[in-house]
Design a protein around this nucleic acid. Structure first.
Lengths: 184, 184
DNA sequence: CGGTTAATTGATCCTGTTCAAACTAAGTGG
DNA sequence: CCACTTAGTTTGAACAGGATCAATTAACCG
């Protein structure tokens, strides 16, 4: 708890476990994202798992906080980042609470391509890096359902598979309207 | 967008609407909580609805931000608050993604009683203030399902109804383990 | 007391889960 | 180079939990 980390390379999957072992994936953290910064009460609230090779930079919390205190610009940048995270979190709530399985997967793909293109650059053949099970844990579904949802999106000509682990979004616009949430 | 608000009395329900009118309630804001502070890109991301009579205090965003910049203590208090909100948001994701209807309602009641006791003081007969539909929008369910879940919790002797709109938690501990999430 | 809104209860339907089997792709070792 | 594994994915069939539609009851208010 003395430190937190800033991802400098790769993708980290952040999740929360329930008592019985089921888990809910809470977010994908990539280059520039902080892991473990949002912790409180002396314990990490979430767990992380590297999806790809990951490099990260460790910060001493106390020293960082006091540095932030002396640098208002940094403080406001951090606040912006949190705003963004909170917005995403709320969006995800709507996804989990209101969307049907193919809509959730559509949303997930758009979100992932968004993360990739902003953090890593380019993403036409969109590399998933996640197994069906991890996607399922993210979307509050089972892996079989995710698989069927992919089949459905493919059948609708919204996406196409590229090799084993990658996907191309054929019609971004239609995919977005398929996932009934305006944003992304 | 020039201002945001701090609730000084009552309870505000914060939600996000989908394109088709369905809505996902994202949180309950009560005394001390800020509404509209976490906005970005020149537009409010969420809508609010007063559950009770509400009084709030309006702040000019720009002036407030510059005040925060000069008061590191305030900045860190705000950061703490956001941390907490983000934690709750992630928790809610797990609720929406993994819990069955009676578990969700159990969680909701614990969370509500938590908000009340910390913000308003006392909550034995826990006043709901929300209709079944609002609760349903919060938990990603339909009102009929919420009603049945309440019946179930009552039948299990975990809660009891008090008059029209209030509930007593009979066995807090058992209710918490019923909602399979450790926290609250 | 009638009239309105919210809550409950019931029956049916649909979506996603569960369990199980088959299939694929990528190793690994003979 | 080919059988044999192994992890992940797809597909199928039966089942369960919520959604949906509809009818009834309860609570509130003028």
């Amino acid at each position: 708890m003395g430190s937190f980390y800033k991802v400098t390379k790769g993708i980290v999957l952040v999740f929360r476990s329930l008592n019985d072992g089921a888990r809910q994936i809470v977010g994908l953290h990539s280059i520039g994202d902080l892991c473990g910064y949002l912790e409180k009460d002396g314990a990490y609230n979430f767990s992380g798992e590297a999806l790809t090779d990951v490099e990260a930079c460790s910060f001493n919390r106390r020293r960082f906080d006091s540095f932030v205190a002396r640098n208002p610009d940094l403080a406001s940048a951090l606040a912006d980042d949190m705003r963004d995270k909170l917005k995403r979190a709320a969006e995800n709530m709507a996804v989990l609470g209101r969307l049907k399985s193919p809509e959730r997967v559509a949303y997930f793909l758009l979100q992932l391509s968004d993360v990739y293109s902003s953090k890593i650059g380019l993403s036409d053949p969109l590399q998933l890096h996640l197994t069906r099970e991890q996607i399922a844990d993210h979307l509050g579904l089972r892996l079989e359902t995710v698989s069927r949802a992919f089949a459905r999106l493919k059948e609708e000509r919204l996406i196409a598979f590229v090799g084993g682990d990658a996907v191309t979004i054929l019609d971004r616009k239609r995919l977005a309207s398929f996932a009934r949430l305006s944003a992304v």
